[in-house]
Amino acid sequence: MTPEARLGELVRLRLGRHDTRRGFLKTALAGAAVASASTACDGAGVEKLLSKHYLKLTDEDKRKLFARIEAEVLARSGVRVTVGDPQPMAGVEFVHALDLSLCNGNRRCVEACARENNLPDDIRYLRVVEVDAGTLELANAEHAYDPELVPRSGKNYLPVQCQQCKKPPCVDACPVKATWVEPDGIVVVDYDWCIGCRYCQAACPYYARRFNFREPSIEPSRINPDQAYLSNRIRPAGVVEKCTYCLHRTRRGRYPACLEACPTGARKFGNINDENSEVRRMLERKRTYVLKEELGTVPRFFYFFG
């Protein structure tokens, strides 16, 4: 088999575009369009009382809802934010790649992510674990490593975040479809639809989901005003959230915050369908490693050894 053919198969297998879920999503969207058309004449009061699923929101619903959220944040924290709703780009499927030979465990990505995504102190989407050299076994990983300097000798580092699986167990688990895969491969959560049962947390093999055990409190000076409904807007208490590949940035062409913060340049990001994207070139040239590949979740996150 030629390398090109092998790569083709790899990409098809892991990131192929023949996806039943996407078909389902289209159906759901079409259904949502019909449903929202039929409910467009509802009174505003009823709408406020019974919030709607994101996929059932009309443009008018969104406009009102986003304005309400912006007003609430302004009233609470005095910060003027904008809540947007950037849509997936046609033909784009996002993939993140991380060079394990470069990661030195400095956690700049963790904190940049926290600031970008308006995370309170007790929530971090990213977890960098320290493993002994010679293994990637997580059972003995150190999570709270805090030496003066990293990397420590004899240790390797493995950052883990949402793998944006193609077959995400969390999405299957959710009883109310409050989390789903977007056409560009990002797994999102509708924070206004989640009931907080945390079954998705139990279902996630990557410890990628976080629950707001309390009302998140963020210092007004640290609030990132550039927000999106499905990503970094300030979450309500009692719902689950997670990494969204910074969709409010990436759907507007930018790189995710974690990538830009990495001082060793270990992170790569781009559209797997684009032959010239960094991630596509990485897949063509490097040895890659997928976390817990045996579970069949088909992550859109690759580790590689540069």
């Binding site: 299957d172 009931i195 907080g196 049962c197 629950f211 009692g238």
Partner: peptide, 19 residues
Amino acid sequence: DLGRPDRLLHLSPGLGVIN
């Protein structure tokens, strides 16, 4: 044990969305 017991209706047929 629910984070949002107020959204229990999201589980009901008709008003909610059942996965």
